[in-house]
Design a protein around this nucleic acid. Sequence first.
DNA 1: ACTCAATTTTGGAACGTTCCAGTAAGCAAT
DNA 2: ATTGCTTACTGGAACGTTCCAAAATTGAGT
Lengths: 343, 343
Amino acid sequence: MSPRRPTILDVARAAGVSKSTVSLVVRGSPTVREETAKQVRAAMAETGYVYNRAAANLRASSVGLIGLVINDLRNPFFTEFATSVQMALSAQGYATVISNSDEDGALQAQMVGSMIEHGVSAFVISPAYGQEAETFEQIARAGIPCLQVLRQVDMRGDLFPFAAFDYARGGLLATQHLIAQQARNIAFVGGLPDRAVTTERMTGYLEALRGTGMAPRSFPGRTSRAFGAEMAALLSRRHPEIDAAVCFNDQVALGMLSGFARQGRTVGTDFRIVGFDDIEDCGQVWPRLSSVACDIAQFGRDTAAALLDWVETGQHPPPMRRAPVALAARESSLGFGSEGKSP
Amino acid sequence: MSPRRPTILDVARAAGVSKSTVSLVVRGSPTVREETAKQVRAAMAETGYVYNRAAANLRASSVGLIGLVINDLRNPFFTEFATSVQMALSAQGYATVISNSDEDGALQAQMVGSMIEHGVSAFVISPAYGQEAETFEQIARAGIPCLQVLRQVDMRGDLFPFAAFDYARGGLLATQHLIAQQARNIAFVGGLPDRAVTTERMTGYLEALRGTGMAPRSFPGRTSRAFGAEMAALLSRRHPEIDAAVCFNDQVALGMLSGFARQGRTVGTDFRIVGFDDIEDCGQVWPRLSSVACDIAQFGRDTAAALLDWVETGQHPPPMRRAPVALAARESSLGFGSEGKSP
DNA sequence: ACTCAATTTTGGAACGTTCCAGTAAGCAAT
DNA sequence: ATTGCTTACTGGAACGTTCCAAAATTGAGT
């Protein structure tokens, strides 16, 4: 099938120039005369040349490959993020190796190892819990730039910059909104206990409650739809006085929504719910789900830009500002009279 | 930061053997004596050696990198597939470069080009429509194995093997089930018109209808939730006689579900719906959505296995059998009296 | 001790680029 | 004509592996 792929040398011969010139043309150097470049490009087309990055890397040691490790790629929030990062990197000529660690720390460490071998120039990691030490040590040892996003794991010295949304403010906005909607007894539902992501969101929730005379009611646990559905059943049965919930994320909130639907309770009037992340589904279900909007696509683009800056300049980036969040209020908290978005 | 990464040569020196021996150890060759291997491994640990795949590739020309190009990575069905393939490949020591073409043929061609440069050993593509010619020609020209999955684009000679589920049978099962549930007027809703994926599903629908005296009613269009919601409104308003729908996919079906919920109509009694793909959400909404179950995780693993077989043996694989589908009947078609799965 | 085969190890030549220190060509000012 | 300066091109040496043919070692059978 293959009579040997043509190399830069074959192209050079066909174009009547040296291999170095071809190399310059390939990389779009401005120092080569346009006329020459044109000939070279013609020769490339004629010979059916394809650039061999492996060889280029070997010499130049920079692969144009970025590693993206995500703890749960099935969650639409992370999918959206991964997609956005991948597309932004792709636009800059970088390819993205994506891995789903599936919340398995050991798997994560293994994948990171494999990516290092492949010579990725940088990492973006939304880490799984467990095995953090090994994972991050490998990266640090190899001296590869790495951005930790969305989730932070406990580390003795924060080796790597961390970027995320302003989770505390999100919790605050959601809770204040429910208070404004006359909710008298607001629970916080879902999220893995004792994780920074959970406690931050809860901090905002507690802050909003302070001084209102309402007692906080936290029900941490998991982060899935199934958990949300279970909690809807549990709250109805055991805590009928609770009339609103700030959920850890949209998965939990959507789960609660269908849990209540199953019981015949109407969310938006009987019970008010606000989710977190504002994934696309929020606007597609009925009642539509209010949520703390995180512009994850923009966040992905920013992440990609910051990372490439680091890779290309070699400058460790400044600590990043928490990305802003906003409340998207919909029927699940407003009821069915009015519509719209509050600040 | 980097006082030069240690190479195979440094390891060889530290272990007191030749570089060739180290190379053999790295690749786990059985021809090297265990005692020697042990020394070499110790030396590797001591020097902090990391394998440089770029160099290995250059010489051996095989990168251990598989390209996965998906038309819509935000759709959970495809996410699940991508995840499954990636994890299966990862278990075999291959890394996966994932790209989302976002239904953009030009983007797809560009991404495929970039992956070829990166030296991927094979492709798995669920193609976007448009630019097929360029995309597949590039791959054919480079002589890279490629599996086309889930969707097929029109090609003069089917250059690449195609694997998918038995869509026609899925359409048949769904429609027969609705007939058994006493539906009298069944529509087929969603799917891009004139695409093989759509027409196959519709073929099964038409076949089930044949001889029942029911007239087929097709409403192709798009594949999104938003489209499903629109259609729920449209059907209620303009075609009140229709009392059931086979949907192109679960996205459309879930959209219809919330569209009807918004109108206050009860799906499962007033109107019966069956989706297609059986994504996780089907069991998480209320009423739970009946769907044609495609074991996408298994399909992903099979795809990975077939592809690796092709890559490693060099044997063009036999044409693949359509993967089986089954009906998962839930409240959206059964109503609320009974529960369970029919064959 | 000696032969022969099997096992284990080895040094040098690739692989296809980029980098670097040039050479050659062109042109303006002396 | 010579000099200097810029612009356009070039040939050889790297990069870190794997491949290969051959060398060294081992060990069993005489």
